[in-house]
Design a protein around this nucleic acid. Sequence first.
DNA 1: CTGAGAAGCCC
DNA 2: GTACGGGCTTCTCAGT
Length: 631
Amino acid sequence: MRVTPENLAWLQSLFDDPSLTLVFHNAKFDLEMLYWSHGIDIFNSKAKVECTLILHKVLFSTALSHSLEYIGPKYTGRSEVDKVEITQWLKERNTKRLIRERGGKKLGFDDAPDDLVRRRVLWDVETTILLYGFLRPKVSNVCPDLYETERQLMYVCVDIECRGVVVDLTKARELKEKALGELKRIKRMLNEMVLPLAYVKDRKDRKTGEKVPTEIVIEDDFNPNSPDQLPAAFRKLGIELKYKSKPKKKKNKKTGRVEMMGGGNWSFDEYSMVRYVSKQLAAVIRESGEDGWPAHKFIDEVIRIVKAEKLKERELLPPLVLQYRQLSKMVSTYYDTFLEKAVDRWTAPSGREYGVLHCRFNQSAADTGRFSSSDPNLQNQPRLLGPRECFVPRRGRWNWHLDYSQVEMRFFCHFAEDKGMAKAIDDDVHLYVATKIYKKPKDQVTKEQRKRAKSTGFGILYGSGPAKQAETLTSKGLPTTKLEASVIVAAYHREFPSVRRLTNRLKSELLRNGYIVNPFGRRYHIDKSFSYKGLNYMCQGSSADLIKRAMVDVWNWLRKMGYKARLIMTVHDELVIECPRNEMKKVIPQVMKMMERKKEYFVPIIAEAEVVRKRWSEKESPEDVGLKLAA
DNA sequence: CTGAGAAGCCC
DNA sequence: GTACGGGCTTCTCAGT
């Protein structure tokens, strides 16, 4: 079937028919395509749109995959034969040789014989319908409300993605040039230090296929990002390599097996690098990270210290490489991406160029139920460095960032039902935990002790033990042995016995049922060997489902009321609303109210507001802009 | 071209 | 006796 006006009209009529239920697998994709590319009005659909991907997701949040290919055969008994047929057909004809003979043309579905295409599409359609028949009754029993939230959330996502966010491309260009300049300077210094660089590597002989040790010489361009060149550079400068990466227990998404992944290579992450330099330099590296120093300041300071302390010149290698990595990351992951992906560009009267970034928000990617974001990912924009300077509100609007205050900790309190922690949650939980662990009054708890308590609290939330706790604390500049960490963790459990009760409860529930379920009805099937993840899934997942509920409520309310304010993004525990100034007083307090849950849980769940007038990097408090939000 | 591993950015 | 949660993107290198 082709895209013709008649066909589009027919599609629109389907959406307008209140007696219909339209079932898709990954409906969001189709809705977005129909709306964005073909102008179909999906938002006022009278027909009910359902999605088998989401049905599967709410029942099996942690499944390896939610794709039709994966779950179709699994639950409907349909074979993959009809589907594979066309893939096979294409594969046979898309070999390198055949493509070349054809003059570089790669074959697609359009080129395949009609009957193959038809069978392929029919497979999708029939499998989806069968899947719907299987999943929908289960969902109606298990978690109808959760599903309904996710279902409506599809429209919210489509709206957010199509609207996009505005970026200042002139600023991106400026920041990129600046970073490039710094990179040049660092590269010059590094080249001076390490070139020429020689190392030996096993290379496969073209003829025999044997591995032969081969000497490689880097004459004029050292690449700090190269896993081969970096260790060679360290060795050449006489730095003894000490630290190796550790393997991690992971579930292989392809095989579904639990395997040890990675590990065994020389490690040059920041944590290791800091340990290769004197403590004065280590302190600078840490401080610059915490405060987001500009590159030139960092480099100058590092050089100053090496001179002042009469350190060996080679100590410059680790910090310079770290700075090089940071800058190249900013350029390739952020500035370049903005410049490449921004669309609908325009030049303002000021002469600055702007554009719109349409990233994707995926409501079904994370095991816990959280949102993820990609193409580009808006959820990992650096907090302290340049990229946030590029994000600006639309004309005439301010961006309101409404974030839940310590929401995962609050759900943790809720599940543990710990009265002491509950009392301290609106004040300073970490300080409170410190008073208990160290048996000291508030005013005698040192900054360090609070830091340790905070880290321990998160460690517990993440299911970590003494070894990892010690590592984390040490990496944060608080040297801690495994033994010391185990003392702190023990003290934590001594003071908060409710936490052990909670983890035990989750564990036995997991062993009994094979899954645990959060207050919104979302199920987590977790491998027994990963049962320590249960607590985190409950806290992270409940937070995710709460904000998802709020997003749907807010979006529906804004539409109903006819406001111009719009949701433009979410960062896990934060909603961003672009709001015309004349609507702020009405909209923002109401949105916060819709996010908050002051009575439903063991502790109140509350939101806080900040506002962006010019750039994301310059968030202000409501008082700063003279807006008083009613409590 | 794809996949693995390492690194680093976010909550 | 164990063991830090959830994402995404970039780079390099090896093997297809």
